[in-house]
């Protein structure tokens, strides 16, 4: 299939960027969006032009490296898939596809479609871990956790930290990301020990990084490649409230 790609090109963090249109010819409808970029980049290199820079790693939707806003949607059209899982058959022959980097003040563009997402790492450093010694692998059923709670924690833990929630949110809020990270640990006995300190520090860091405020319109949940529920944001709010009230 043939499409036109209108893509954001920006040489570096400090230089202004602009949109450039490229004709992409003979792409397989079964190619992923990233593979389409690979095909285009080969052409660009052959012509002696700078290839389009984009983040990628596993290319099977589990690492959280890739992330492009495609036609106004984080990770492109469809639900529950990262950019690497988006197939070209999602578009029509002759379409003009607009590809932009995540747009948020805490995510400055490094080059073309690559943004600096270390703000999310700094939120994790602030408290997204268990520092208590949990010992070796416990015997089966030594720590009893009800199945629904374990499932809920597992759902939260499926967050791959891609930043689509921030990119999709009209306020560039990171509440779904922080909600998932706080939730997965707050639900489990190993994480409960430091729950209070964790939520205080992670929310504080999130605010310092300059993310916006959640206005509960749930665009994040709709665009999350792991379909993480906004009920984790409710849990984050509750955990944070408990630190002040209790």
């Amino acid at each position: 299939m043939n499409v036109t790609l209108k893509v954001w090109r920006q040489k570096s963090k400090n230089e202004p960027g602009r949109f450039v249109s490229y004709a992409v010819r003979n792409v397989s409808p079964d190619a992923s969006f990233l593979e389409m970029l690979d095909v285009l980049n080969v052409e660009l290199v052959k012509k002696g032009e700078e290839p389009i820079a984009f983040d990628h790693d596993c290319r099977e939707g589990i690492c959280g490296s890739c992330g492009i806003v495609i036609d106004g949607r984080a990770h492109g059209p469809g639900r529950g898939a990262a950019t690497c899982e988006l197939r070209m058959r999602s578009f029509r022959e002759g379409d003009t596809i607009v590809a932009e980097p995540w747009r948020a003040a805490p995510f400055p563009v490094i080059k073309d479609l690559i943004v600096d997402r270390t703000a999310m790492d700094r939120i994790m450093y602030a408290g997204g871990y268990v520092s208590a010694k949990t010992g070796g692998v416990p015997d089966g059923n030594a720590i009893l956790i009800p199945k629904p709670v374990a499932d809920e924690a597992m759902d939260a833990a499926s967050c791959i930290g891609c930043g689509a929630c921030v990119a999709a949110c009209p306020n560039s809020s990171a509440m779904l990301f922080v909600g998932a990270k706080v939730s997965q640990l707050a639900l489990l006995p190993q994480g409960k020990v430091e729950a209070k300190r964790r939520v205080e520090r992670m929310v504080d860091q999130m605010d310092k990084e300059g993310f916006g405020n959640c206005s509960n319109n749930y665009a994040c949940e709709a665009e999350c490649p792991k379909e993480i529920s906004v009920t984790h944001i409710a849990r984050l709010n509750m955990e944070f409230l408990k630190t002040t009230v209790a």
């Binding site: 806003v69 916006g212 665009a219």
Partner: peptide, 17 residues
């Protein structure tokens, strides 16, 4: 919230979500 996104999207399909 406006400050958190200084550079707007060229295409932004919030209405789909």
């Amino acid at each position: 919230n406006k400050r958190a996104r200084p550079q707007k999207y060229d295409v932004y399909m919030l209405k789909e979500n």
